[in-house]
Amino acid sequence: MSASDNMSQTPITLDIHKILDLLPHRYPILLVDRVLELEPHKRIKALKNVSINEPFFQGHFPKRPVMPGVLILESLAQSAALLTFAEEQHDENTLYYFVGIDGARFKRVVEPGDQMILNVTFERYMRGIWKFKARAEVEGVVAAEADLMCTVKRMGEDAQK
């Protein structure tokens, strides 16, 4: 094994600055803080620090703050987008759309102070649709899991095509 082979197997990490370069999302909907490991065409492991300062906690729920399940799924989808964007060329006119969620299950609440680990594995790409297995964990316990389907479009393209 050559040194270059060994380097290609080292997972990539991304800080918030690179995440902001790759994703169009901004506060308050940017839900990935760091990429801990990224293996192009295979998997991503990302981190979301859950803070009481998140705007949704004011109403969900005032006496017992819990991160909404749809936002947990959104954080997984953003992680999938980072995996996809690491694999193909894109520019600021490229958008990533959720097109399906199968088998979503919520198994643990996510609360302020939690660190959510987002694990997404590439399953397949067919006819413009990317499919992923996704799992969010807190302290090694599964909080949510789902199969995600996404597509990449350029702004101005009909999202229904």
Rank of each mutant, 00 (worst) to 15 (best):
G113Y: 07
M155D: 13
Q89V: 10
A159E: 12
D33N: 12
K42Q: 12
E54S: 03
E145Q: 14
K131T: 14
S79I: 07
I19H: 11
V99A: 10
V152N: 10
H25R: 11
N6Q: 13
T151L: 13
E92P: 00
R154V: 13
A3S: 10
R154A: 11
Y96L: 05
E139D: 14
V50C: 06
D15G: 12
K153F: 11
P65R: 01
L148V: 10
S75F: 06
Y96M: 13
K153Y: 11
R43Q: 13
M1E: 13
L118N: 05
I117D: 04
G69N: 11
L30Y: 01
V109R: 04
I117W: 02
E111T: 12
D5T: 12
P40W: 03
F98C: 00
V120W: 00
M155H: 11
P62R: 01
M67R: 10
H17D: 15
V50A: 09
D5Y: 10
F122T: 03
F98Q: 07
F61R: 06
L23V: 08
Q89S: 13
E145V: 08
G100M: 08
M67S: 12
F85H: 10
D33C: 09
M126G: 05
A81F: 05
Y27T: 07
G128D: 07
Y27K: 05
I129E: 12
M155I: 15
P68D: 07
L22H: 12
R108I: 02
I19D: 07
K153G: 06
A3L: 15
K48R: 06
G59C: 04
V120A: 04
M149P: 01
E87H: 08
N6E: 12
E145P: 01
H60T: 10
L38Q: 05
A46V: 03
V32A: 06
D147E: 15
Q58L: 11
P68M: 01
I44M: 03
E88G: 03
L31S: 10
V50I: 15
L118Q: 00
S75W: 06
Q9F: 08
N93I: 00
A46G: 09
G69A: 08
A46R: 04
L36H: 02
F56V: 13
S75N: 05
E137W: 01
K18D: 15
V50Q: 11
E145G: 07
M149K: 15
S2M: 06
